[in-house]
Design a protein around this nucleic acid. Sequence first.
DNA 1: TCTCCACCAGTGGTCAGACCACATATATTA
DNA 2: TAATATATGTGGTCTGACCACTGGTGGAGA
Lengths: 205, 205
Amino acid sequence: MDAPFHNKVYIEIVKKIRYMIEQDGLKKGDKIPSERELSERLHVGRSSVREALRALELLGLIETRRGEGTFLRDAKTNRLVELLSSFILQDEKAIKDVKETKFLIEMDCLRLIIHKKTDEKLKNLMKLVQEDLIQDEEFFLNIVKLADNHLFYRIWLILSDFYRSLNMDQGPFEKRNYEALIEALLTSDEKNVLEAYKKLRKLSI
Amino acid sequence: MDAPFHNKVYIEIVKKIRYMIEQDGLKKGDKIPSERELSERLHVGRSSVREALRALELLGLIETRRGEGTFLRDAKTNRLVELLSSFILQDEKAIKDVKETKFLIEMDCLRLIIHKKTDEKLKNLMKLVQEDLIQDEEFFLNIVKLADNHLFYRIWLILSDFYRSLNMDQGPFEKRNYEALIEALLTSDEKNVLEAYKKLRKLSI
DNA sequence: TCTCCACCAGTGGTCAGACCACATATATTA
DNA sequence: TAATATATGTGGTCTGACCACTGGTGGAGA
């Protein structure tokens, strides 16, 4: 119906749904119109609407509950990773890239933190470590958040999912390394910070 | 039909397609069975097959050509990053984050290059600069490629697109800054490299 | 014989309608 | 009032029907 010229209908629908979400200011957990309603409002067949929704679902951007409806989802836990990893990550190089990218971004975040006033929050994080309340992934989730760069945050989340799905042996959680990293951050000395990080990650470079 | 217990049919189909690809040893570019054939072989409706295929398509794992068929794509050009940009980046048009991220990634790539044997290619790049054949964007495209991390490459491409669309005033292309950056890279000294970069980008930090 | 072109089968793209399974709200009944 | 039955709305799936496009094939014409 809509654009037989170039784009496929379901792609148009994806865009329109995204636009709709933006317009109506929908948040995570909010309900989006039913398939039948979308079908009518957009003047397309329900099957096309479903193709768009299924794609978005596979990406983890929406969640459908039979008998209830379709809801926006917190993109944090997405199946995207599972899928892509099973299709892509056989490649040695790709795995290496994921790891490398994740570590480099973590280092960038550390650098960003140095130039911000985050002592208070760092001390809170320190407490969490000392009280054995968090481990590696959550620790760096906090770090990345402190860096206050939403893009890095999103990218890191995906990479972290990937990384987890690789089931790489990380060795035990050595608390003192994490404590040392925070201490280094509190000194605001880049060199110290990076050294602490490399020790934590057992990197040589 | 298949698993009425919990899983949705289209998810099962995704899995089976993946299995099929593995079994038949299909490579990128190869054709996968037609929608109708899959429908028969898997004993499901064609619409369910399509939902699965559309999802895989949106992920960039397959490519469909009307009148021809459905083909496996080079998984290396996955949509990981495009997804980030179209759904997540759009929400928070944090211009500052885009700029910051782009620059940090460029610096990461520079660091990566230092540890690789790329002198030859750097010298070629130097020639291009000297002969006025390239400007900023293409210059850094080369740099990012040299870093040899596909993930960074994809991310940078998106950021670069976005950055360009922001129409930020970059000032004139000062050739000598780019030449100096390459020279610094040839010295393999991280400090020199980063200083050259910061001068080029007029960064203070 | 060779070349060109119309035709046809196969493929993806889309729509409409019909069920089913499930969840919730509403009306009915004990 | 509380428990139950019904109605309605939702996603899940299948079927069959077209359309638009591609590529090959076979026949007409040179």
